[in-house]
Every structure is written in structure tokens, then in C-alpha cells.
Design a binder for these strands. Structure first.
Length: 320
DNA sequence: AAGACGAAAGTGGTTGA
DNA sequence: TCAACAACTTTCGTCTT
């Protein structure tokens, strides 16, 4: 038991805030923090992930009045593009009559004519903006449905803008590009979602999403770290209702596996699933392969294969 | 009856000529 | 551009608890 190091997430930056009214259901502590970056509520004493996939309750991207605009302090440059009427503004009608149906005076008539002209011009100029409006609203919907924290949503918005600058909207649908940006943002922040999960909530296929993402990674030169199995452990463990000791154990197993070089080239979710399976047995909180395979979105066969590899390595480790 | 195991064939993506 | 290739999935029969 002593070799199990309980990993504690502590208050490290301002993304984390205390939420006093919540009590940890594992140890009863009130030392519970809210981590917006990871989208989780975590007990600071025992490390239990109390809540994840929190719904983002922050202000909307769009704003329609000067007062509202002042409140939008949480976003940076993408906001410039998100202030838009979204097609809801008044359109000056084509008839030269006032609201009573009377003909307009010549001077007034000329004025209205000028206004119409400018409205037409600004509208045709804003096709790019309209793309962003649509994209950002889709991003809002997707992120909120998946419980993605706002900081990651912003990251995704920035990535999307970069993609637009590279003219990626020519070859890729808005939906695919939004989903790919979100996927990339999650990878960058080390709390990966699987392609499957995002494709499911978005209205595109996994294949389309994968293609869009690969194109995105190539065109927008940014470093997207490889997702490691360890990144998936907290989420899967929580979905399976496993205790912290199991996930700590699983993480330890994965670290050893990585040192042994048997994780390379393997699906990280499958790897994470197998580690949790073994850790569950070791910690007497067994879950069936089927249950684990379901939350990790891989097949039982894959869990088994990874599991066999891990066990093979572990026996060597025990023997030496 | 449910879970675990493994073989065999199929699928979609990557790589290197 | 195409074929070889590795990883993963699907399917299904058998063994174990």
C-alpha cells in the first residue's frame, strides 16, 4: 500500500478557485477546488474528481449593446469578430415611403438611398465575418454540450481563426473545422477528448473530423502534443466510479510501461483502459473488460491485447 | 449465465518506394 | 500513386467462474 502515492492536485494557478459549499463525498473534506481549465471539481485532500464535464456558465460570446460588450472581459482577440448582428439587424426596405405610406421628400429619399447602398456594401464585405459567427456559435454549442471549459473553448476559437487565415475554409466545412479546432485545443491542454466523442456530438463523421484535424495540424503550424494514456485516466476512472487509489495505480503502471517502451504506436485510450483494468484487479475494485471497453470506446479485444502486454512486462518487473 | 479468452478475417490509415 | 504493413475492430466459438 505504501508504494501507492496518492496524487493530489493542488491550487496552482488562478484557473482554480475554491467552492466552499461543496463537500467531498469520499472524505467529507470541504477543501474542494474548482478547476476551470480541466472542467473538473476536485477534492484537494483526497484527489477525488467530484464533478467533471462542467457546463460553462460564462457569458456569451456575442454581445449586442455597449454595456454587454464591457462585460466580455474573458475573451481576447477573437471577440473582434464575434460582435456581429448575425443577420438580425434592421434592413432598409426598398420602397421610398415612410411608415404611413406617404412618398418621401426628395432630400430624405437621397439619404435613404445612401443608407441602402452602404448597408449593401457592408453586408457583402462580411462573408468572412459571417463564417466566424456561424463557427463560433457552433463552437459554443459543441463545447457546452461536451462540458468543455471556457479556456479551452477560447483556445479552439483562436485556432479556428488561424485556420481561416490559412484559407482552410475553402476545402473544409465549417462544422469539421470547428470540431477539429476543439479537438486540437483539448490535445494542447492535455485533457484530450477522443475523435469519437467529438464526432458524435458534432454532426460529422469521425473520418471527416480526422481529415480536418490532420489538415489543420499541417497548415497551421503549431505543436500539438501527442495524447498520452495518462491523460485519459482521470476521466475514465471517474466514469467507471473507481477510487483514486485505482487511478493512481493505473498511472504508475502506465509510467512503467512507457519506460519499457511498450506504449509507442498504440492507441492511448486502449492503453489507458488496460491499465485501469489491471489496477482495478490489484486494488480489488474490479470492473469487467466490457465496462471498461465501453467508457474507453475501444473493443474488449483491444483491452485484452494491451492487458496481456502489460502483464507480460509486469512479470518481468516483479521477477527482477 | 456472464465474463474472459483467442483465432481469423476485415477495415481504415500510414509509410516508403 | 500504390502496395505493404501495423493497429484495431468484428465476429464467433470455447473455456472459466
Amino acid at each position: 500500500m505504501s508504494d501507492i502515492e496518492i496524487e493530489r492536485r493542488t491550487k496552482t494557478n488562478e484557473d482554480i478557485s475554491f467552492c466552499r459549499e461543496i463537500r467531498c463525498n469520499e472524505c467529507g473534506s470541504l477543501n474542494v477546488v474548482c478547476d476551470d481549465t480541466r472542467g473538473e471539481i476536485i477534492c484537494n485532500d483526497c484527489g477525488l474528481v467530484i464533478e467533471e464535464h462542467m457546463v460553462d456558465t460564462g457569458p456569451e460570446w456575442r454581445s449586442y449593446t455597449a454595456e454587454e460588450r464591457k462585460k466580455r472581459d474573458r475573451v481576447g482577440s477573437p471577440m473582434n469578430y464575434s460582435i456581429h448582428d448575425k443577420g438580425l439587424s434592421t434592413i432598409i426596405g426598398p420602397e421610398n415611403r415612410d411608415s404611413y405610406g406617404n412618398n418621401l421628400a426628395p432630400r430624405r429619399r437621397a439619404e435613404i438611398y445612401r443608407l441602402r447602398k452602404w448597408q449593401r456594401r457592408t453586408r457583402t464585405h462580411s462573408s468572412r465575418d459571417r463564417n466566424l459567427i456561424q463557427a463560433l456559435s457552433e463552437l459554443d454549442r459543441l463545447a457546452s454540450q461536451m462540458g468543455i471549459p471556457k479556456s479551452i473553448k477560447e483556445e479552439a476559437a483562436i485556432i479556428y481563426r488561424k485556420a481561416l487565415e490559412k484559407k482552410m475554409s475553402r476545402s473544409t466545412s465549417i462544422e469539421s473545422l470547428v470540431a477539429a479546432s476543439l479537438y486540437a485545443a483539448c490535445r494542447i491542454r492535455q485533457i484530450p477528448r477522443t475523435l469519437d466523442e467529438i464526432a458524435e456530438k458534432s454532426h460529422i463523421s469521425k473520418k471527416q473530423l480526422g481529415q480536418a484535424f490532420r489538415l489543420l495540424a499541417r497548415r497551421v503550424n503549431m505543436s500539438i502534443p501527442l495524447s498520452t494514456p495518462i491523460d485519459f485516466i482521470p476521466r475514465f476512472a471517474n466514469d467507471l466510479g473507481l477510487s483514486v487509489s485505482v487511478s493512481s495505480r493505473a498511472k504508475k503502471l502506465l509510467k512503467k510501461a512507457k519506460e519499457a517502451g511498450i506504449t509507442a504506436g498504440k492507441d492511448p485510450t486502449g492503453m489507458a483502459a488496460a491499465a485501469l483494468y489491471i489496477a482495478g484487479i490489484l486494488e480489488d475494485e474490479r470492473r469487467t473488460q466490457r465496462e471498461i471497453a465501453r467508457v474507453a470506446r475501444v473493443t474488449e479485444v483491444t483491452v485484452r491485447n494491451r492487458y496481456k502486454e502489460l502483464v507480460k512486462y509486469l512479470q518481468i518487473a516483479v521477477a527482477t
